[in-house]
């Protein structure tokens, strides 16, 4: 009888532990954390370095068109395009969702800076590799535009 009671209380304890784990999981990982809204994993300088490239041109419209063409090549749909501010936002859907924002601004008298930042399924992409791939594709598009190859 004692053995049965012990077994029963062990099971009850295990159940309680499991229930607590489930609740803890919900509370710890799924709750809102607004305190992280302005936190960064890398430094601002590091983030800017892998998200930005300088192009030796002053033709903002041409560069914006190249960005749009590249985004189309990569199967994005343009959500927003603002020539004055130099901003393009686009979304890619391929069983997943990637939202990308590209800004273009002047750097000195001879260059334009292109900065890209992207979100994969609502999370910021903090790996430099996808940005390198994007700029590699943009370089190809710029090459095509410059050399009138279609």
């Amino acid at each position: 009888m004692n053995c049965l009671t012990n077994k029963y209380s062990i099971n009850t304890l295990a159940m309680k532990v499991m229930i607590l784990m489930v609740i803890a999981c919900f509370l710890c990982s799924c709750a809102n954390k607004p305190k992280h809204a302005f936190e960064m994993k890398s430094s601002q300088v590091q983030v800017r370095s892998y998200q930005t490239r300088a192009y030796d041109t002053t033709d903002k419209v041409l560069l914006l068109r190249s960005v749009i063409a590249t985004l189309q090549d990569l199967e994005f749909i343009i959500d927003k395009a603002d020539i004055e501010f130099g901003v393009v936002s686009a979304t890619k859907l391929n069983r997943y969702s990637i939202r990308m924002t590209i800004t273009i601004r002047k750097r000195g008298e001879r260059q334009l800076l292109v900065r890209a930042n992207a979100h994969y399924n609502l999370r910021t992409i903090e790996d430099p590799m996808p940005y390198q791939d994007f700029f590699a594709a943009l370089n190809k598009s710029t090459f095509l535009t410059n050399h009138a190859v279609d």
């Binding site: 499991m18 919900f26 990982s29 997943y96 994969y120 399924n121 790996d127 996808p130 791939d133 994007f134």
Partner: peptide, 22 residues
């Protein structure tokens, strides 16, 4: 349930390598 919560809710799938490649 615990495993499902951990697997489906808390672990995000990785960005496919080809996502930004032509």
């Amino acid at each position: 349930i615990t495993v499902m919560v951990v697997v489906t809710g808390c672990v995000s799938s990785k960005l496919p390598k080809e996502a930004f490649k032509l």
